[in-house]
Design a binder for these strands. Structure first.
Lengths: 182, 182
DNA sequence: CTTTTAAGCTAATGGCATTAGCTTCGCTCG
DNA sequence: CGAGCGAAGCTAATGCCATTAGCTTAAAAG
């Protein structure tokens, strides 16, 4: 019986694939094991349990999004940077709707996820720098940005918009209304 | 052995209590049955299966929120009505965070839920009437309102805001930025 | 070539959803 | 008031999943 050559990373890879194909609620150790060509209990050599696997997937998603953020923001500043970040956020959620649903919304409250959450935060802070906001105003501005990005992305990726009206236009209005307040 | 006197409504009541106490992910037929003082299979006399129970809970939540909307909007109009609706939305989500998480985001796509979704929609339409928006502008305006309300409420009810800055102020800014665009 | 470590396996337990089929409460009607 | 019936609830059984324990053995280290 040859060895499958698994690793924690490979297990998380498989978990992400399961989520992409069947939805975040269908993430199951049995499904991941099947995809890895391994018996279910074998996964416990690489992952503590299902809850930990979920956390690792959450971390993966946070990191991926932070990478997109960094990519979108480099070489831009001000309104252009904010717009690029918002589009990167939405693009990630629509490209991987199930994965987006698996992203934890409170990364700063979980030690394993805090670093990835902070990476995202710092990119946004940098984009807002030109406006020279005070500490408190900056917090409120980042929150509003996050509310709009997450609100829109979670609704869109879950099929929550029923009418045929152009969604790009709605998103543009949201971004513009934010920029107008600065 | 006396009879428990259950009904579909009573089962949904118990399900909502389970969700309130243990979170939406812990909604289980076994937990509902225990709360009703009944064996698990007995629930199938009142509810098709777990998926249907989830739908019924979703309907209950949609209806409750529509009631709050109606209550908040009556006797008000214009900016005052919009503000009241937004506060009613947030108040419901913070009063019942787990229940809020159980609210379906695509009610218009499910026949059983469409009526409740439409009730909410109509209250919002009425509140926006003073601005005399065209059909398309109205759709975008309602979407932006929903994005902000849902984005904020889902983050807040999930503990997604990490910093101690005043959340009322952030929400106020969101509402103001919306009203400024009209 | 031996030793050792850890990867993977099988077996077993317990929780949950769901189905089938039985029992009996409690209402309706003669 | 008693017979009959429909629905409410029950027990038993199946199958899936997570998790644990303990065994086997591949493959790296010496």
């Amino acid at each position: 019986m040859p060895r499958a050559g698994l690793s924690t990373t490979a297990v998380v890879d498989a978990a992400v694939q399961v989520i992409d194909e069947h939805g975040a609620s269908q993430l199951t150790l049995a499904a991941v094991a099947a995809r890895c060509g391994v018996a279910t209990p074998s996964l416990y050599k690489h992952v503590g349990n299902l809850a930990e696997l979920r956390t690792l997937v959450g971390l993966r998603v946070l990191d991926e999004l932070a990478d997109r953020f960094t990519e979108a923001a480099t070489g831009r500043s001000g309104a252009e940077a904010v717009t690029a970040l918002m589009h990167a956020y939405r693009a990630y959620a629509t490209a991987h709707p199930a994965r987006y649903a698996a992203m934890p919304v409170d990364p700063l409250h979980q030690p394993e996820l805090a670093a990835a959450g902070l990476r995202q935060l710092q990119v946004i802070q940098a984009a807002l720098r030109p406006w020279q906001l005070g500490p408190s105003a900056q917090v409120h501005a980042i929150r509003r940005l996050r509310v709009m990005a997450h609100g829109f992305a979670s609704l869109e990726s879950a099929g929550g918009f029923g009418l045929p009206e152009d969604l790009d236009e709605t998103y543009r209005q949201l971004i513009d209304s934010f920029l107008d307040t600065l």
